[in-house]
Each structure stands twice: as structure tokens, then as C-alpha cells.
């Protein structure tokens, strides 16, 4: 049994290889892009619209509202990055019901890649909002002594993002594999349903944590102390929520 779809290699030339992770990522990407293309090809701007357009509108608006609720005042700006994160992870989780499909999020390489994207995106959005110096200065808050801890926190939360998603997705697939070999038929179905739920929850957690990090990095209007308190409180809250869900 493979722990990761990385280990299923279809083609390789020196270090360049085409493994299941990349292939299934492309499958998910194609699903999303072609689906969007087909639906948005004939969009209606009237009151009457197709069911598929309605579904996409509901999805986009819900994501947008979630971003806004976390505290980002201009959700459309972050919708591209954060929405894509959620849709990619959620679609990967949903596709696990297809026999033979290996979720790309079950690969630590994928989750690390996504976490790295968040790791880079947070300071990018922060610098864009606060300026380079302003953003760097936020690492020394509330005191300079906190600088190393802030840096460690930055790295560790990225690692946590990657490992959390990988662990959950991989475990789901693993449990399914093990149960299939022990008790076929009934348990695998139940576990697949559980896996779907876990996958959706993980997609939501990954998306909401990324949103919170970006929100924390882009808040400048509030007083510093309040900002720090708010930021830590929100993070703690989200972490607690995540922990209880796990």
C-alpha cells in the first residue's frame, strides 16, 4: 500500500516525473475549469438563470461572505486565491468517491505546496496593504523580543497547515483501504461518507485559516494592542475549532 500518490509514478526522466499527484491534480483542475467554462459560457444577467449558474453563484457568494465575515473588507480581491484553495481541496475530497481516484491532497507534497502558497501569499497581501516596513514591523509586535517567536509561529503554522490536511486526507484513504481488506461492502461505504465529511471540513479549515492569516497580516486600521489581541484571539479560536473537529 502506498502512503502517498507521489509513489505512483507514470513517467520519469531524471528528477522530472509524472506521478499520480500531478495527474490527479490536473484531473481536478480540468474538472473545475471545464465545468466553470461550460456554465459561464452562457451566463444570464436577467432574473431567469440556469440551475448550474445558480449553484456557482451560491458557491462564489458563500465563499465571498465567509471571507468578509472573517474580517477582510474587500473579499473580491482575495476571492481568487482563497476560493481556489477551498474549491481545489473540496473537489479533491468529493472525488474520492470515484473508484481509483487518488486525492492529490493525500500527498504531503501537495499540501506542502498549498501551505507554501499561503506562506508566500500572507506577507504579499500584508506588504501590499501595510507597506514593506510596516509589515516587517508587525513581527516585532508587541515587543522586539517576540520577533523569533513570531518567525517560528510563521513557519510552524505553515507546517501545521500542510501536515493537518495531509494527515486527514491520507488517513481517510488509508482507513478505507484497510477496511476494504477486512470488511467489504458496509463499512467502506460508511467510511467513505465519513471521509467526504472530513474532506469538506478540512477544505473549510484550510480555507478559513488561510483567510485568518491574511486578515491578521492586512489589518492596519485598528490600534496595535487591539489588533494583536484580536489576531491572537481569532487564531486561537480557529485552532480550537479545528482541534475539536479533528
Amino acid at each position: 500500500m502506498n502512503l502517498s500518490p507521489d509513489q505512483i509514478i507514470f513517467w520519469q526522466m531524471s528528477f522530472v516525473k509524472l506521478n499520480a499527484t500531478i495527474v490527479f491534480t490536473w484531473v481536478v483542475m480540468m474538472l473545475l475549469v471545464i465545468g466553470s467554462l461550460l456554465i459561464t459560457r452562457k451566463l444570464s444577467k436577467d432574473m431567469q438563470r440556469s440551475r448550474w449558474q445558480n449553484l456557482l453563484e451560491v458557491v462564489v457568494i458563500t465563499i465571498s461572505k465567509q471571507i468578509e465575515e472573517v474580517g477582510l473588507s474587500n473579499p473580491h480581491k482575495y476571492l481568487g486565491f482563497l476560493g481556489s484553495l477551498f474549491l481545489f481541496i473540496a473537489t479533491s475530497a468529493i472525488c474520492t468517491v470515484i473508484p481509483g481516484f487518488e486525492p492529490p491532497t493525500g500527498s504531503l507534497s501537495s499540501t506542502v505546496a498549498l501551505a507554501l502558497c499561503v506562506f508566500v501569499a500572507v506577507p504579499m497581501f500584508g506588504i501590499e496593504k501595510q507597506g514593506f516596513r510596516g509589515y516587517l514591523a508587525s513581527y516585532t509586535k508587541p515587543t522586539v523580543i517576540m520577533l523569533p517567536f513570531n518567525l517560528i509561529s510563521e513557519v510552524s503554522r505553515t507546517l501545521a497547515l500542510a501536515v493537518r490536511l495531509f494527515g486527514n486526507m491520507m488517513s481517510g484513504v488509508m482507513i478505507l483501504g484497510i477496511l476494504l481488506s477486512i470488511t467489504p461492502f458496509l463499512f467502506p461505504i460508511v467510511m467513505t461518507l465519513l471521509g467526504l465529511l472530513t474532506g469538506m471540513v478540512q477544505a473549510y479549515i484550510f480555507f478559513i485559516l488561510a483567510t485568518v492569516y491574511i486578515a491578521a497580516a492586512t489589518r492596519v486600521q485598528q490600534p496595535e494592542r487591539e489588533l494583536a489581541q484580536d489576531g491572537s484571539a481569532t487564531t486561537e479560536k480557529q485552532d480550537t475549532k479545528m482541534g475539536s473537529q479533528q
Binding site: 500531478i22 451566463l43 505546496a113
Partner: peptide, 28 residues
């Protein structure tokens, strides 16, 4: 390598979805 490829894949996905999903839907 997979990490790098996935980063690229994800960035491409972000661009594609922005282009074909979010913008048309938000515009409409």
C-alpha cells in the same frame, strides 16, 4: 519536484478560475 509542480499547478488553477469562474460570475 512534486511540490514545485503543485505550486505551479495551483497558481495556474488560481489564474484559470479567476478568468473563467469568479470574474464572469461576479460580473453577472
Amino acid at each position: 519536484f512534486t511540490v514545485f509542480a503543485q505550486v505551479i499547478n495551483f497558481l495556474v488553477l488560481v489564474w484559470l478560475l479567476k478568468r473563467f469562474l469568479y470574474r464572469p460570475i461576479l460580473d453577472s
